[in-house]
């Protein structure tokens, strides 16, 4: 079964990538363009609305959700380089906007939303050559990528194409890293206890580098690893994939 060729996609950049990991966004653009796809990046985008939504402030989240649904209205895929933001668009916008004039549009957007690595692996079915030195990496899959989006295999499948990359997961890979957005601040001690265990499991792998496709987890885990003085650089999966497959530093 051949899907109709895709020539254009939207990129939803996410606010965390915008401010903290712009290289992940650049890599996402490059990875898609290299497949011959035109990447449309609407400038009116800001955030998906998760922070207020998860805190129970639905009106505030809805205002932003409406803006996203209105702006990403062409019938082309919406690519999101983050499991939790993709989950917000795919699974929560439809219920958040169910009672308003955008109900149908939200359903439509949800059906066109893909997490970046899901899109690369399942829809575009990319095949890559590895261009880097042997390296051992540890992959942290976010809870939203794993459970809400069900795309934990996609990131790993892409990594496994790379001959020089030895991929492992930490013990208790499916355990939450403790980020949870405002949870990390509101329940900081519980969050820290979870993050501490995650960091120990990650360090125990003795990998050279940590990868994740969610910036929230990266900020949390990397922040703690740096505080611990661990020598374990953290990077967004998209950036790593782009560099390993022949892309210059974006």
């Amino acid at each position: 079964m051949n899907a109709p060729a895709i020539h254009r996609v939207y990129l939803f950049g996410t606010c965390l990538i915008d401010v903290f990991h712009p290289r992940a966004g650049m890599a996402a653009v490059r990875l898609l363009e290299r497949e011959g796809i035109e990447v449309v990046f609407p400038e009116e985008q800001t955030c998906c609305g998760q922070p207020p939504y998860n805190s129970g402030y639905d009106d505030e989240a809805r205002a932003v959700a409406r803006q996203v649904v209105r702006r990403f209205n062409e019938p082309i895929p919406v690519i999101v380089p983050s499991g939790s933001c993709a989950g917000m668009l795919r699974h929560h916008y439809p219920s958040l906007l169910a009672d308003g004039p955008l109900a149908e549009a939200a359903q439509d957007l949800a059906a066109r939303t893909y997490e970046l690595h899901e899109f690369l692996n399942r829809v575009l079915q990319v095949t890559w050559q590895d261009h880097g030195d042997p390296v051992k990496i540890v992959m942290h899959t976010s809870c939203s990528a794993r459970r809400e989006m069900g795309v934990s295999e996609d990131g790993l499948a892409l990594l496994k194409q790379l001959k020089g990359v030895d991929v492992c997961e930490p013990e208790n890979a499916e355990a939450c890293c403790g980020f949870g957005g405002t949870f990390a601040v509101k329940m900081s001690d519980i969050s820290a206890a979870m993050a501490t265990d995650k960091c120990s499991a990650i360090r125990a792998t003795e990998a050279d580098q940590l990868l994740s496709s969610d910036c929230g987890c990266l900020l949390n885990i990397d922040g703690m690893l740096r505080k611990q003085g661990a020598n374990l650089p953290a990077e967004h999966l998209a950036e790593f994939l782009w560099k390993r497959t022949g892309g210059d530093t974006p």
Binding site: G13, I17, H21, V29, E43, R226
Partner: peptide, 27 residues
């Protein structure tokens, strides 16, 4: 940042340029 974050983690470091700035140049 709230101390709740920094007590357990190194401070957050924003990038030097935002992604959106890069996109505008890229376009």
């Amino acid at each position: 940042l709230p101390r709740a974050w920094t007590r357990h983690r190194a401070p957050l470091e924003p990038a030097e340029r935002s992604f959106q700035e890069w996109v505008r140049h890229h376009k």
